[in-house]
């Protein structure tokens, strides 16, 4: 049913136990008159099919982490790998990125926005139509298929961007606060949809979020980051079954996970804001 978005399953060479994507001793310093050490050093291994979330205080380098893993920015030190090959200079085939900012193309309708990457990749028009129609339904954009982004709310535009990335059937999906512009209810529902998609496509997901409950509910593992320069202060396994949804919030273990994340984040957020933890 969701085969229109499913791509990862057909991947060859999946037998190797090596990580699907990995960062080894990665740092990133923005050069300039006053260089900004934004990230790291960081080590991270994402297992194939894993759902990994990152939480961290504002400005700690989360978006930088995504840029580096995607190949959009080079690390200042360290090594970035994807499917056994170093990531260098450009975004490798198989990685899809959803940016924190609204990246919809204002001159294209919702449908054309979602079809954009497929058309550029020369995918057969019938196949484009099939995948785009599925994604439009999946993202709840049916009534706005012919609308332009300016006619949509921020949350809907973000859904367009998510759809535009998903139809490319990435094997590693990098999501930078994709639900940031959504209200809490829609956010939970979208979380469920994302989980369903993740199960059906078997893609690896790296999700950046500022919502602790979202991280706790969606992920196999959650990384809590320190204030800038971002480093992992905790890597926490949730232990949820693969079949799961937002009803997890009622689980006994759920509160313990968010509490543990918050204990890290509280201290680091205070640091990030220039205060000292009490």
């Amino acid at each position: 049913m969701a085969d229109a978005l499913a791509g990862a399953a057909a991947l060859p060479g999946a037998a190797a136990p090596a990580a699907h994507a990995s960062l080894r001793g990665v740092t990133r310093v923005y050069p300039g008159a006053a260089p900004v050490h934004a990230l790291g050093p960081i080590d991270l291994d994402l297992a194939r099919g894993e759902f990994f979330s990152v939480v961290g205080p504002s400005g700690c380098g989360k978006s930088t982490l995504i840029d580096v893993q995607a190949g959009l920015a080079a690390p200042s030190a360290g090594e970035v790998m994807f499917e056994g090959k170093p990531v260098a200079g450009k975004v490798p085939d198989g990685i899809g990125v959803v940016f924190q900012e609204d990246a919809s193309f204002p001159w294209l309708t919702v449908t054309d926005n979602i079809a954009f990457g497929l058309r550029r990749a020369g995918v057969d028009p019938a196949e484009v139509r099939r995948r785009v129609e599925y994604a439009i339904g999946f993202m709840g954009l049916r009534d706005f298929a012919r609308a332009y982004p300016v006619q949509l709310s921020g949350g809907m535009r973000q859904r367009v961007c998510i759809a535009r990335t998903l139809v490319l059937q990435p094997r590693l999906i990098l999501l930078d606060e994709p639900f940031g512009a959504l209200d809490q209810q829609t956010r939970l529902l979208m979380g469920d949809e994302l989980l369903r998609l993740w199960r059906e496509t078997r893609a690896t997901v790296l999700l950046i979020t500022h919502a602790l409950d979202e991280a706790a509910m969606l992920s196999d593992r959650v990384g809590a980051m320190s204030a800038r320069p971002g480093r992992f202060v905790d890597l926490l396994k949730t232990g949820w079954p693969r079949e799961r949804d937002s009803s997890l919030v009622a689980e006994a273990g759920f509160g313990a996970i968010t509490a543990r994340l918050w204990s890290h984040l509280r201290a680091e957020s205070l640091k990030a804001m220039g205060g000292a933890p009490p």
């Binding site: 995607a70 959009l72 450009k90 975004v91 990685i95 990125v97 990246a103 193309f105 990749a121 490319l168």
Partner: peptide, 8 residues
Amino acid sequence: RSARAMRL
């Protein structure tokens, strides 16, 4: 950046 991410 989107263009790069979509490998244009």
